[in-house]
Nucleic acid binder design. Structure first.
Lengths: 239, 239
DNA sequence: CGCGGACTTGAGTTTCTTCAAACACGGTGG
DNA sequence: CCACCGTGTTTGAAGAAACTCAAGTCCGCG
C-alpha cells in the first residue's frame, strides 16, 4: 500500500520532455522534436506535495497542468461547508483547461505528484503556430465533458451499491487484471473523498463495500486496495 | 400555460440570419454580414416536432444544431431501461458540439422547436478561415462543462428539497421576476423529465413540490408553472 | 507502547421508494 | 353539451434504504 509502484518512477529523468511518460497524450504530441527542445527549456516536471492545491477555487486559472504522475481530486466546497468532489484526475489528464476564469473548484494532490506546467499565455502563442495544439486542447475538453456526463449518470443511480460499483469499474479501466481475471484497484483517495464523489456518507460507503465483499462481488477490501471479482460485474453498456 | 409567448415568435422571419434572435450568441457572431449572407443560403431554421430527436443516442453526430426557439432534453437510456436526463437545452445553446462520435445521449424536443443546422464538415471549413469560429466553439464547450459540473453538484445534494430548489433556481435565471419580486417559471418538461434529471422518483418530486408550496418557499405550483416566492431562497454561492 | 486519524460497525430515525389508488385535465364521440 | 376515456400528476400507506450519532476497531507513527 505504501510505496506504490507507479509513483515517481520518472522523477529524475523528467527534465527531458522526450523521455516524458505522458508526452504522447499531452499537448506536446503536436510538436516536432526541435520544437519540443524549445519547450523543454521552460518546462519542468513540478513536484506537488500531498494535499497541496495547484488550482484554488475562486482563483483565476492562468496555467494548464498536465499530470505526469500521482493523482488529484477536484473539490468544490459549498457555502455550507459540504464538499462535492467533481472528479479525480490521473496521469496524462489536464488540470486547468478552462483559462482566465475564477475556478469552480480546487485541484488537490491525493499523493505526492508530478505535473508539467504551461502558462495559458504561452499556449495561446503556441496554438497560433500549431493548429494541432488547439485541436488537442479541444479534444481534451470534450473528454472532460464525457467524464462529467459519466459522473452524472453515476450520481443518477439510486442505490449506493450501483454507485460504488460504477465507480470501481471506471477505476478498473486504468488497472490491469491479474492472471485469474480479478482486478486489484489501488485507491489513492480517502473514503471521505470517495463518499463526496459519490454523493454518499462515508458510513454508507463503508457498509456498501462490506456488503459487496460479503456478496462476493468484491473478492477483497483492504484499506486502500480493493479487488473486483473475476466474473465481475457485467459491463453496463447503454442500449 | 398553453400558447407560451416565447415560442415560435420568429418562425417566419427566420430564413434571414441577420434577423435571427440568437445570432449574437451562436457561431454566426464571428462572421461578417457578407459572410453571413453566404451562410444564409444553406441555412434555414428547421422546425422540430415535439418529442422528435435531432440527435440519437449511439448514432454519429455530424451536425451541430443551434437552438433558436423551444427547448430540448438530453436523454441517456441505460441498459436496464432507466433514463437519465443529463441536461436541458434552451435557445442559443448548442446541440451536438462533439463531432464524429457515437452520441452518449439523444436530444429530444420538449415542445415544437426551431433549430439551425450546421454540418461539422462545413464548420471545420469555416473555422479554417475564421479562427474566431473555433474559439466560439471552444467557449461553448467550456460552457457545457460548467453546466455539467453544476448538475454534478446538484446531484450531490442529499435531500430532494435541495435538489428541486437548486433546479428551479437555475431555471429562474432565465426568467424575469414580476413586480412583487416573485419569479414565475414555466416548465416545458414533464414531471418525469425533471425527476430523471434530479435523480428522484416522480412521486418524490411531486411530494417535494407540494411541501415547498406548504412551507411557502413556492407561492404557486400549477401544472407546468411554478413561482418562486419573493423572499426566495438565498442564492447558494460557493465560499 | 500509546496516541491519533482513518475507517468500520451498531442502533435508531428520517427520507426516499414502491405499489396502488385517486385525481385533474383535455380531447373525443355520442 | 355532457359523459367518457386516456394521459399525466398527485396522494396514501407500507417498506426499504440511507442518514445521524455514537462507539468501537485498525493501523501507522512518534
Amino acid at each position: 500500500m505504501a510505496d506504490h509502484p507507479t509513483c515517481h518512477r520518472d522523477a529524475f529523468q523528467s527534465h527531458f520532455c522526450s523521455l516524458c511518460q505522458v508526452r504522447g497524450e499531452s499537448v506536446c504530441a503536436a510538436l516536432s522534436d526541435a520544437e519540443l527542445e524549445q519547450v523543454a527549456k521552460t518546462m519542468a516536471h513540478l513536484p506537488v506535495k500531498q494535499d497541496e492545491a495547484v488550482i484554488e477555487q475562486g482563483a483565476e486559472v492562468d496555467n494548464l497542468y498536465v499530470v505526469v504522475s500521482g493523482a488529484f481530486r477536484l473539490v468544490r466546497v459549498l457555502a455550507d461547508g459540504r464538499r462535492q468532489i467533481t472528479g479525480f484526475v490521473f496521469p496524462s489528464d489536464f488540470l486547468g483547461l478552462v483559462a482566465n476564469e475564477p475556478s469552480a473548484y480546487s485541484a488537490e494532490a491525493l499523493e505526492p505528484s508530478l505535473v508539467c506546467r504551461f502558462s495559458h499565455a504561452f499556449l495561446s502563442d503556441l496554438s497560433q503556430k500549431h493548429p494541432g495544439v488547439k485541436d488537442r486542447l479541444i479534444a481534451k475538453g470534450q473528454n472532460e465533458l464525457t467524464k462529467a456526463q459519466h459522473h452524472i449518470v453515476l450520481l443518477g443511480k439510486s442505490t449506493a451499491e450501483e454507485r460504488v460499483l460504477a465507480f470501481l469499474q471506471t477505476l478498473s479501466e486504468r488497472a490491469t487484471p491479474n492472471e485469474d481475471g480479478a482486478v486489484e484497484i489501488y485507491l489513492p483517495m480517502s473514503r471521505q473523498d470517495i463518499a463526496d464523489y459519490l454523493g454518499l456518507r462515508m458510513e454508507t460507503l463503508s457498509r456498501t463495500l462490506a456488503a459487496l465483499k460479503k456478496s462476493r462481488k468484491l473478492s477483497a477490501v483492504a484499506g486502500r486496495s480493493v479487488t473486483l471479482s473475476a466474473l465481475g460485474v457485467e459491463q453496463q453498456q447503454f442500449a
